Simulated scan of single mutants.
Amino acid sequence: MAWLVLVLSGLLETAWATALSASKGFTRLWPTVIFGATLVGSMAGLAYALRSIPVGTGYAVWVAIGAVGTALVGMFVLGEGFSVTRALCLLLIVAGVVGLKLAH
């Protein structure tokens, strides 16, 4: 259960990072509200997951899901551009997370 919550919390990290960008420095109401709600949910889920997952592994997995997810949203939704180099770098992050999970 902790791993499922951790993954969902990582996805919420993608949501709050995207909402933070859309808030334009907290000048737009609804993106700011979404940012706050998803931030709290993401942190609460991470806190729950870290009850049974070691902090080093859990935090690295959470950050990686958020970072890769946010980069993918940027590339495919926000038009930040896709390149093979960017894709390979994201795959390296995913490989590192899988390695951490397998070593757990």
Rank of each mutant, 00 (worst) to 15 (best):
W3Y: 13
V5E: 04
V5G: 09
L8F: 14
L8V: 15
L8C: 10
G10F: 06
L11I: 07
L12W: 05
L12C: 10
T14Y: 00
T14H: 00
A15Q: 04
W16K: 01
W16P: 00
W16H: 09
W16A: 00
A17S: 14
T18Q: 12
S23W: 14
K24Q: 12
K24W: 01
G25K: 07
F26E: 14
T27V: 06
T27N: 11
L29N: 01
P31A: 05
P31H: 11
P31M: 03
V33H: 03
I34F: 14
I34Y: 05
I34L: 15
F35V: 01
A37I: 15
T38Q: 07
L39K: 08
V40N: 02
V40C: 08
G41P: 10
G41W: 07
G41Y: 10
S42Q: 11
M43K: 07
G45A: 03
L46I: 02
L46D: 02
A47K: 14
A47Q: 14
A47F: 09
Y48K: 13
A49V: 12
A49F: 11
A49Q: 10
L50T: 15
R51I: 02
R51Y: 03
I53C: 06
P54R: 07
G56Y: 09
G56P: 08
T57V: 13
T57Q: 05
T57L: 11
T57G: 02
G58F: 11
G58L: 08
A64I: 09
I65S: 02
I65W: 01
I65C: 02
I65G: 01
G66L: 02
A67E: 10
T70S: 09
T70P: 03
L72H: 09
L72F: 02
L72P: 05
V73D: 04
G74I: 08
G74P: 04
M75I: 14
M75S: 11
L78R: 12
G79Y: 09
E80P: 04
F82Y: 10
V84A: 07
V84S: 06
T85E: 00
A87M: 00
A87F: 01
L88S: 03
L88W: 06
L88P: 04
L88C: 08
C89P: 03
L90N: 03
L90K: 08
L92F: 08
I93Y: 01
V94W: 00
A95F: 03
G96D: 12
V97R: 05
V98L: 10
L100W: 03
L100P: 04
L100H: 05
K101V: 12
L102G: 08
L102T: 04
L102V: 10
A103S: 14
